[in-house]
């Protein structure tokens, strides 16, 4: 028998692998798709959430603005309160996410006496300029995220979060 011929035993082994693979795929395909569903689920853009902050009262100094919304976490619905640092840049309202881009701690405005006019993260001394740009040499690797904002009846509305658009590179 030449070397290229498939022996009976090889043939059986190949077919066995094929049938076994088919069964494993048939069993696991629905289950794996089921498990990775959260990865593939596209989340609709968030709504704008009203806050108590009057737009007219905003200044150039960032202030803490709390806002709460109903969070739907699969079968579990809950009210979540979050906050943003909001200030006015000329006429434009800027709302920055307080989540540090280093490891997710919460940054404070002028949280460190030695660094005025900066956001400061107390966890690992990360610092950001007022527009959210991270200061080189401190732990964070990117600028603070930004919330979309809207105004309605003189009150501030906070929308979905997006990457910082203020920092020019």
């Amino acid at each position: 028998m030449s070397n290229n011929r498939v022996s009976r035993r090889q043939f059986l082994n190949y077919t066995l692998t094929g049938v076994g693979g088919f069964m494993a795929a048939g069993m696991l395909m629905p289950m794996v798709r089921f498990a990775i569903d959260p990865v593939l689920q596209s989340k609709g853009a968030g709504d704008f959430v009203p806050t108590d902050q009057k737009v007219a009262e905003l200044t150039e100094t960032p202030v803490k603005v709390n806002f709460s919304f109903e969070q739907v976490d699969a079968w579990y619905k809950s009210d979540v309160t979050a906050m943003a640092w909001v200030y006015k840049e000329g006429d434009k309202v800027v709302a920055l996410s307080p989540v540090c881009k280093h490891l997710g701690c919460t940054v404070g405005w002028e949280g460190d006496k030695n660094h005025p006019d900066e956001f400061f993260c107390a966890c690992h001394a990360g610092r950001y300029h007022k527009n959210g740009e991270n200061i080189p040499g401190t732990p964070p690797l990117g600028p603070l995220d930004e919330f979309e904002v809207e105004e309605k009846d003189g009150l501030l509305l906070i929308g979905p979060v997006r990457p910082n658009t203020l920092v020019k590179k």
């Binding site: 059986l12 066995l16 049938v19 048939g26 069993m27």
Partner: peptide, 21 residues
């Protein structure tokens, strides 16, 4: 058992799995 009989068994299993799904 391996591979002769197991192949037949798995073929039955594959048909069964299709019906089951």
């Amino acid at each position: 058992f391996w591979p002769d009989f197991l192949l037949k068994e798995w073929m039955v299993g594959a048909v069964f799995l299709i019906g089951y799904l």
